[in-house]
């Protein structure tokens, strides 16, 4: 086991990292919790790892209604930050449900968003997988589909994205600052990811040499009091989601004026439930409104042989999450 040898570099500043990261065969190393696993499993072969973990991109700042998290902040530092816990509990909850204490001390925010799929066909050498080996077929679609996506999959790939944090940040309409050889750009978080289509080997819209510098969340203060991250999984801890839901509401005069819903474990990327969000606006936070929203959340689901249960599970998870955040008693 383990992949080919690589060299190691630790550039002193961001400019140096961008220059070295743009070289052919280079990859950025941050916390390493996914990259080192991928390398050991023979799924990542890089000539050079460019260690960015000490670059000054790890701050957690709250000012003028904006939360800015440096991409190199460790997950545990974000989840245990007093103001993140108080003002962005959805983020703290999603991270608390992620991996284990040891991994959260190592893994970074940017690396968590960029982790590759946990699909067993991708993670196991010798299995057919178009994401790992384009043209080899999708072993999952033809085999065990319990973990497969309900939305956004293609004939070439049915893998899901595993990040809990990405689901919470999608619900909060987070944006990313991307740095690269051509400068800086800002994108909405879901636009980091691409649907598999016929090229599932390409996970993201990052160009070679680009890196995530920071995550920004704005205008979310009104959602803090009514937000929750519900993760349904096969074990109580240290397990990826079968289905997860990030939900947040803002109520005024007994009616929903703002609704945020996103789902995990059901698509190749964190899946916004825009139709369900829209259906809640102006409604009283009651069982009928929640059931209608949950019905819209599963609309268009395309289950395969073994994952039909996830349609009902997602519907119920949306209802339960909305009941949690919508309680008015």
């Amino acid at each position: 086991m383990s992949g080919p040898a690589f060299s190691y570099a630790r550039p002193a500043d961001v400019a140096g990292a961008l220059a070295q990261g743009a070289r052919p065969g280079a990859a950025f190393l941050a916390g390493g919790t996914d990259l080192i696993q991928l390398w050991k499993a023979g799924l990542a072969a890089h000539a050079e790892l460019v260690d960015i973990s000490r670059l000054p991109l790890a701050g957690i700042d709250l000012a003028d209604g904006e939360l800015a998290i440096g991409a190199l902040a460790r997950l545990s530092d974000v989840a245990l930050h007093p103001r993140v816990m108080a003002e962005h509990p959805l983020i703290a909850q999603a991270i608390a449900a992620t991996a284990s204490g040891q991994v959260r001390n190592m893994a970074t925010v940017g690396g968590n968003l960029l982790q590759r799929t946990r699909c067993a066909y991708f993670r196991t050498q010798g299995m057919a997988c178009n994401k790992r080996e384009p043209g080899s077929g999708c072993g999952a679609a033809a085999g065990e589909t319990r973990q497969a996506a309900l939305f956004g999959a293609s004939a070439a790939c049915v893998a899901t994205h595993a990040s809990d944090l990405a689901v919470a940040l999608t619900a909060l309409r987070a944006e990313l600052t991307i740095l690269g050889p051509d400068g800086e750009r800002r994108i909405a978080l879901p636009d980091l990811y691409r649907l598999p289509g016929q090229t599932p080997q390409i996970d993201t819209t990052l160009a070679p040499g680009e890196l995530i510098a920071a995550v920004q969340v704005r205008r979310a203060a009104g959602l803090a009091a009514r937000s929750t991250y519900l993760k349904v999984r096969d074990r109580a801890s240290f397990e990826f989601a079968v289905v997860s839901v990030a939900a947040a509401l803002r109520l005024e005069d007994g009616a929903v004026v703002e609704a945020r819903l996103a789902a995990g474990g059901v698509a190749p990327l964190p899946w916004r439930l825009a139709g369900a969000e829209a259906a809640l606006i102006g409604r009283a936070p009651d069982a009928r409104a929640f059931a209608e929203a949950a019905g819209l959340a599963v609309e268009g689901a395309q289950p395969l042989a073994d994952n039909g249960f996830k349609v009902e599970l997602l519907r119920r998870a949306v209802i339960r999450a909305l009941e949690t955040v919508g309680a008015t008693a």
Binding site: R10, L29, T33, I36, Q37, D51, N105
Partner: peptide, 19 residues
């Protein structure tokens, strides 16, 4: 493989020594 790094627990199998 858990060890403490700066007092925080980490998995030493996923940490690159050079880092």
């Amino acid at each position: 493989c858990t060890v403490l790094m700066g007092g925080r627990r980490i998995k030493s199998c996923l940490a690159l020594a050079a880092a």
